[in-house]
Write a protein that binds this DNA or RNA. Structure first.
Length: 833
RNA sequence: GGGCGAGUGGUGGAAUGGCAGACACGAAGGACUUAAAAUCCUUUGACCGUUAAAGGUUGUGUGGGUUCGACUCCCACCUCGCCCA
C-alpha cells in the first residue's frame, strides 16, 4: 500500500479552515448546554509572539477543546489590550503613528495565533484603542465619578526637569531619566484617582470566595491590601494643646515613646516651625526629601534621616515630653503621616535614635534575659512582658496591646483604627495613547463630566510626537477647546488619558456583546455567562490587573448593573518559559520564534512540546532539541494509523468482549482503558498535561509490541478491532493537544469530521482491573524479590507463597521474623532480626 | 528583613508514605544505506562484581527526627527564584 506522508503544513491549513467554516468556536448563546467561559488574558500587541507567550494561548485552547468534548457550551474569545506606552515610544522613535503601529502588530500576532491552531470566537474580537470600546471605558469612569469613586487631587509624579516631562515609573532608571540621565524629581500635579481604598475590606473579605485561585495569588492580594489593626493615639502639642494623631499597630510600646516623627509632607510642619530658629533648616530638609522618590526613601538601604523641629508633644499615657522630628522614612500616605518613635522595639526607630542620640526606653522584656537601653545592639521586636508601663507592668505584651487600646478609648485619648496599605488607584497618565478622561473644565461651572450622550471623547488623530515636553494632547487646540455641557460657554477638556489597567479591568464583560453601541455590556448576558469559569494568564498580573478587575466588578455590582461580586471563578497562572536561564525577551535576545518551528515541524509538534515541557504552572527551560521528540511521536502515530488506511473500511466493527480476547489483545485493551483514566484525571484535577501526554506515548509504545495483522479470520478481526479501538481512543485523548493531526487521522480511520463533536471517552471499569499483580517483596525494607500473584490472593496465601519462595527463604535463613507488613496489591515487607 | 515557591541522572522532568528516575531529549553501540539524513533495535544514575548470567552497595541540597518503610511527613540549616519591604 502507498505510504502517505505526514504533510503537516497542508493538514494544519486544511483543518484551521474547516473549524472556521463549521464554526467550532462560534458560541451559540441560545444553546441549552451548560456554559463554560474560558478566558486567556488578552495580549498587548507589542510586535510578534514568541513560544513563551504561546504557552498561555495553547493551554487555553486545550481547556476550551476539552470542555467542548465534555459537552459544554464554551465561550472562548480574544481581544487586544491595545493602548499603552510602547506604541507611543515607537511613534517618537520611528515616526509611525501609534494607531498604525498597533494595527500592524495586531495583524502579525493574529496570524501567529491562527497558525498555532488556537480557536476563538473571532466575531467577539475587541480592541481597547477602538472608540467603540473606549467609549465604554469612559462610561465606566463616569459611573465611578457619579458614585464619588473617581476624584481629583494633587499627587507626586516623576518629573524630568531637563525633558520637562512626566515619566512613567518604568522610565525612571536608578532615579534618573532613561533618556537624558538627569536626576528625576518629584512634582505635584492634579491627577485623577479611583477610590479603590473604599473597597479594601470587601476586596480582602471576598478573597474567601475565590476557591479556584492559587493560594499564592490570594496571599499576594491580601498582602497588597495590607490590612493592619491599630490605634490612633492623640499626642498633644506642648504649647497649644492641639492634638497630633499618630497611628500605631503596637500600642503596647506606647510607654517607650521617646520621640515623634512626621512625614515631610505633613501639613502641621509649617505651623510648628514658623518663627523658630530651626525654620529654615527644616524647610530645606523637607524640600530635599520631597524630591526623593518614595521607593528610594523607604528602601531598607537608604539612610534614615531627620531633623528636629524644636517642638514637643506630650505622651498621653505618662505625660512624657518628647521631641517632634521630621523624618524621610515616614510617609504621608500611610496612617496619619505621624508616627511615634519607640527605639527599643522598632528597627527603624532604633537606627534613627542611635544616629541622633535620642533616648531609648525599654518597655517589653523578653523571657529569660534583661534588656538594657545602653547595651542593646538592635531593637527587640518580639513578644515579652511589659515593664515601665504604669498599671500594665507584668502583663504579656499581646495582652497589653488590647488593654492599652481599650484604656485609650475609655479615656478619650485614642481610637481603635484599621488602616490599609492599599492606596487609591492613580489613573491619570500624561500621555496620548490612552482613553481620554471624559471631563471638561468650565470657568463658570467648574469640573464637569462629559454627558454620556457625548461619548466617546475621541482621541484626535493628527498630533505631533516629540521626545520633549508635555503630552501631545496638550497642544491640540481642537481637542482641548470645547463647550461646557452645562452653560455652553467656552470650556477645555482634560488632557490626561487613563491608565491602561482601566481598559483591561472590564474587557471580559464586553465579549458578550462586543458590537453593542448602546451599552457597555448586556446585564442579562453577563449575569448568565459570568463569573469566568476559567481565567488563564501569567503570574505577573497576580496583583494589579486582578485587583483592579475585582474592584470594577464590585463597583458595578454595587451600582446594580451585574449580579456577581467576583469576575473570575478559577484562576490558572502558568509558568514562564526560560531560555539560557532568563525569561524570554527581545532585549535579552533569547526569544524562540514560533514561525520557524511551525515551518519545520508544524503547529501540532510545537503545541505538543510546549505542553510536554513540564507542569504548566511551573517555569520550564526551553530546549530546541527537545522539539524533535514531539515530532517523532506524531510521526509514529501518523504511521501507525495510515499503515492500515485501506483496511479500516473492510473490517466489520464489533463490540469488544473481554472474555473473547487473546491475552495480548486483552492487555492492550486494559492499557487503553487505564490510559483513558490517567489522562482524564490529569485533565480534571491537576492540569498535568505533561504526564497525560507521557501516558499516551506509553500506550503507543505498547501498541508497537502488539502484533497487528490485516485480518483473514474472525480471531484476527477481533484483534484488529482492539487495535482500532486503541487508536481511536489515542486520537480522542490527544485531540485537545494536537488537534490538526487528530482530525486528519480521525477521518483516515473512517470517521466523519469533526473529532470535536465526539464526546470525551469514558473508561470501562471492568477493563482496567489487572488479573495478576506483581508483589514487591522486601526484607527489612530492601527489595529482595518480586512475585506474581492473582489480584484476589488472600494475605495468608500471599505470606505462604512468599515464605516458600526459594530465594526469599535463602535470605531469611537463620534470621528471626519479627513482623510482616502487607500492602495489598503492592508490597510485602518482612522485618527480621 | 518578611512572605511564597523550588532544589531528583549529562538535560527537561516522573513518582505525595510503598520497586526512585515513568515519558522524552542527549549520548554510546548496532541494523538499513555506496554514503549521509530519516527510521528501527540495544544500552544508558553512580560504584563494585562476574567469561557471561546474576548479584551487591550507594543514591532525590545538608543535618537530625517520626515510621516496618521517607523524594514525599516533622524540625533545623544551606542555595536559587519570584513577590513585598
Amino acid at each position: 500500500m502507498a505510504k502517505r506522508e505526514y504533510n503537516f503544513t497542508d493538514i494544519e491549513k486544511r483543518w484551521q479552515g474547516f473549524w472556521e467554516g463549521c464554526g467550532l468556536f462560534h458560541t451559540d448563546e441560545s444553546s441549552r448546554k451548560e456554559k463554560f467561559y474560558c478566558l486567556v488574558m488578552f495580549p498587548y500587541p507589542s510586535g510578534t509572539l514568541h513560544v513563551g507567550h504561546g504557552r498561555n494561548y495553547i493551554i487555553g485552547d486545550v481547556v476550551a477543546r476539552y470542555k467542548i468534548m465534555k459537552g459544554y457550551n464554551v465561550l472562548s474569545a480574544i481581544g487586544w489590550d491595545a493602548f499603552g506606552l510602547p506604541a507611543e515610544n515607537a511613534a517618537i522613535k520611528g515616526g509611525i503613528h501609534p494607531a498604525i503601529w498597533t494595527k500592524n502588530n495586531i495583524k502579525a500576532m493574529k496570524r501567529q495565533l491562527h497558525r498555532w491552531g488556537v480557536g476563538y470566537d473571532w466575531n467577539r474580537e475587541i480592541t481597547s484603542c477602538d472608540p467603540d470600546y473606549y467609549k465604554w471605558t469612559q462610561w465606566i469612569f463616569l459611573k465611578l465619578y457619579e458614585h464619588n469613586l473617581a476624584y481629583k487631587k494633587k499627587a507626586a509624579v516623576n518629573w524630568c526637569p531637563s525633558c520637562a516631562t512626566v515619566l512613567a515609573n518604568e522610565q525612571v532608571v536608578d532615579g534618573c531619566c532613561e533618556r537624558c540621565d538627569t536626576p528625576v524629581r518629584q512634582r505635584d500635579l492634579e491627577q485623577w484617582f479611583f477610590r479603590i481604598s473604599q473597597y479594601a475590606q470587601k476586596l480582602l473579605d471576598d478573597i474567601s470566595l475565590l476557591e479556584g485561585w492559587p493560594e499564592r495569588v490570594k496571599t499576594m492580594q491580601a498582602n497588597w491590601i495590607g490590612r493592619s489593626e491599630g490605634v490612633r493615639v492623640d499626642f498633644k502639642l506642648e504649647n497649644s494643646g492641639k492634638a497630633l494623631p499618630c497611628f500605631t499597630t503596637r500600642p503596647d510600646t506606647l510607654y517607650g515613646v521617646t520621640f515623634v516623627s512626621l512625614a515631610p509632607e505633613h501639613s502641621i510642619i509649617e505651623e510648628l516651625i514658623s518663627g523658630t530658629l530651626q525654620e529654615k533648616a527644616v524647610m530645606d530638609f523637607v524640600d530635599r526629601v520631597r524630591n526623593q522618590g518614595i521607593v528610594e526613601r523607604t528602601a531598607e538601604a537608604t539612610e534614615k534621616e531627620g531633623i528636629f523641629t524644636g517642638r514637643y508633644v506630650i505622651n498621653p499615657v505618662n505625660n512624657d515630653k518628647v521631641p517632634i522630628w521630621v523624618a524621610n522614612y515616614v510617609l504621608m500616605e500611610y496612617g496619619t503621616g505621624a508616627v511615634m518613635g519607640v527605639p527599643a522595639h522598632d528597627r527603624r526607630d532604633f537606627l534613627f535614635a542611635r544616629k541622633y542620640q535620642l533616648p531609648i526606653k525599654v518597655v517589653i522584656q523578653p523571657k529569660g534575659e534583661e534588656l538594657r537601653a545602653n547595651t542593646m545592639k538592635e531593637a527587640y521586636v518580639d513578644n515579652g512582658i511589659q515593664v515601665n508601663s504604669g498599671n500594665f507592668d507584668g502583663m504579656s505584651n499581646t495582652e497589653a496591646i488590647k488593654k492599652i487600646a481599650m484604656h485609650l478609648e475609655y479615656k478619650g485619648l485614642g481610637t481603635k483604627t484599621v488602616t490599609y496599605r492599599l492606596r487609591d488607584w492613580l489613573i491619570s497618565r500624561q500621555r496620548y495613547w490612552g482613553a481620554p478622561i471624559p471631563i471638561v473644565y468650565c470657568e463658570k461651572c467648574g469640573t464637569l463630566p462629559v454627558p454620556e450622550s457625548q461619548l466617546p471623547v475621541v482621541l484626535p488623530e493628527t498630533v505631533e510626537f516629540k521626545s520633549h515636553g508635555m503630552s501631545p494632547l496638550a497642544e491640540v487646540d481642537s481637542f482641548i477647546n470645547t463647550n461646557c455641557p452645562k452653560c455652553s460657554g467656552m470650556a477645555r477638556r482634560e488632557i490626561d488619558t487613563m491608565d491602561t489597567f482601566v481598559d483591561s479591568s472590564w474587557y471580559f464583560l464586553r465579549y458578550l456583546s462586543p458590537k453593542d453601541d448602546s451599552q457597555p455590556f448586556v446585564t442579562k448576558k453577563v449575569n448568565k455567562w459570568l463569573p469566568v469559569d476559567q481565567y488563564i494568564g501569567g503570574v505577573e498580573h497576580a496583583i494589579l490587573h486582578l485587583l483592579y478587575s475585582r474592584f470594577i466588578t464590585k463597583a458595578l455590582y454595587d451600582f446594580r448593573y451585574i449580579n456577581f461580586k467576583e469576575p473570575f471563578q478559577h484562576l490558572f497562572t502558568q509558568g514562564m518559559i526560560i531560555k539560557e536561564g532568563a525569561k524570554m525577551s527581545k532585549s535579552k535576545g533569547n526569544v524562540v520564534s514560533p514561525d520557524i518551528l511551525i515551518d519545520k515541524y508544524g503547529a501540532d509538534t510545537q503545541r505538543l512540546y510546549i505542553l510536554f515541557i513540564g507542569p504548566p504552572q511551573k517555569d520550564a527551560e526551553w530546549n530546541d532539541r527537545g522539539v524533535v521528540g514531539a515530532y517523532r511521536f506524531l510521526n509514529r502515530l501518523w504511521q501507525k494509523i495510515t499503515d492500515y488506511e485501506d483496511v479500516y473500511a473492510k473490517v466489520q466493527r464489533a463490540d469488544i468482549d473481554m472474555n473473547k480476547l487473546s491475552p495480548a489483545a486483552k492487555t492492550l485493551y486494559r492499557q487503553t482503558n487505564q490510559t483513558i483514566k490517567k489522562v482524564t484525571e490529569d485533565m480534571e484535577t491537576s492540569w498535568h498535561f505533561n504526564t497525560a501526554i507521557a501516558a499516551v506515548m506509553e500506550l503507543l509504545n505498547n501498541v508497537d509490541v502488539f502484533n497487528v495483522v490485516i485480518p483473514s479470520n474472525a480471531a484476527e478481526e477481533l484483534n484488529f478491532n482492539v487495535f482500532r479501538h486503541t487508536m481511536e481512543i489515542t486520537l480522542l485523548l490527544m485531540s485537545p493537544f494536537t488537534p490538526h493531526i487528530c482530525e486528519e487521522l480521525w477521518e483516515a480511520i473512517g470517521h466523519k469530521p469533526s473529532i470535536f463533536q465526539q464526546t470525551w471517552p469514558a473508561y470501562d471499569k471492568n477493563a482496567i482491573q489487572e488479573e495478576v499483580v506483581e508483589i514487591v517483596v522486601q526484607i527489612n525494607s530492601k527489595v529482595r524479590g518480586h512475585l506474581s500473584v492473582p489480584i484476589d490472593v488472600s494475605n495468608a496465601d500471599l505470606k505462604r507463597r512468599v515464605l516458600s519462595d526459594e530465594r526469599i527463604a535463602g535470605f531469611l535463613n537463620g534470621k528471626e521474623v519479627m513482623d510482616i507488613v502487607v500492602v495489598p496489591k503492592k508490597l510485602m515487607n518482612i522485618v527480621v532480626k
